[in-house]
């Protein structure tokens, strides 16, 4: 993998830091008129998801990380691995529980997810921003409530629990924003 100098640092560049692939979020050049030059860099560690700030001496070089985002459709889980497929090449890849993490609750068959590969292995699985899932269980709400005040918990087919308005019932399909975990609307038929 190539090395990158601080001059090449910009949002989206993937580098290795403490043995972990990282994504550069922001890079600010700091140079007093009479003093040493530094780069103040905001970084997201791609495995832990942790965001941190690190200061580099200007001109320093670091190793690049072989990280690639790929769009793959979710197929199924065998209980241990989650299997995804490239819809164009039909190539399949298996991600472990660690890579899927909490996002397991948004995985629906045939939905296209973003899989981040490091040295060819999946390290994170990001579901689409919006998914449509069926409600498997929720208390029957009061008819006529359309204001959505308060709402009630609903369990979805994947096991996710979201707050929904009182008028939404078991068996209905709803649209959820996976980034916030919030109900958006009833699904379009």
């Amino acid at each position: 993998m190539a090395n990158y100098s601080t001059n090449e640092f910009k949002g989206g560049l993937k580098i290795m830091l403490d043995g972990e692939p990282c994504n550069i979020l922001e890079n600010e050049y700091v140079k007093p008129g009479k003093g040493q030059a530094f780069n103040r860099v905001r970084i997201r560690k791609l495995i832990s998801g942790k965001v941190l700030e690190k200061t580099f001496r200007s001109g320093e070089t670091v190793e690049g990380a072989d990280v690639l985002d790929t769009e793959l459709a979710y197929l199924y889980t065998d209980g241990e691995f989650y299997h995804f497929m490239n819809n164009e090449t039909f190539e399949q890849i298996a991600a472990d529980e660690k890579a899927v993490g909490d996002n397991v609750k948004w995985l629906k068959e045939n939905d296209v997810c973003t899989i981040t590969l490091w040295n060819g292995s999946p390290i994170t699985v990001t579901p689409p921003n919006f998914v449509e899932l069926e409600i498997t269980e929720t208390d029957p709400g009061l008819k006529g409530d359309t204001a959505g005040t308060g709402g009630k918990p609903a369990t979805l087919s994947t096991g996710a629990v979201v707050r929904v308005p009182l008028f939404v019932q078991t068996g209905e399909v709803i649209k959820v924003d996976t980034r916030s975990g919030e109900y958006v609307s009833r699904a379009q038929k």
């Binding site: 007093p32 003093g35 040493q36 700030e53 690190k54 200061t55």
Partner: peptide, 23 residues
């Protein structure tokens, strides 16, 4: 103050003062 400088090279006094001043 969580100012984390990459690498093992020790910083001299003026550089430390400069970082504290800038940040």
């Amino acid at each position: 103050h969580d100012i984390d400088v990459h690498g093992d090279m020790a910083l001299d006094k003026d550089t430390l003062l400069q970082l504290l001043f800038s940040y």
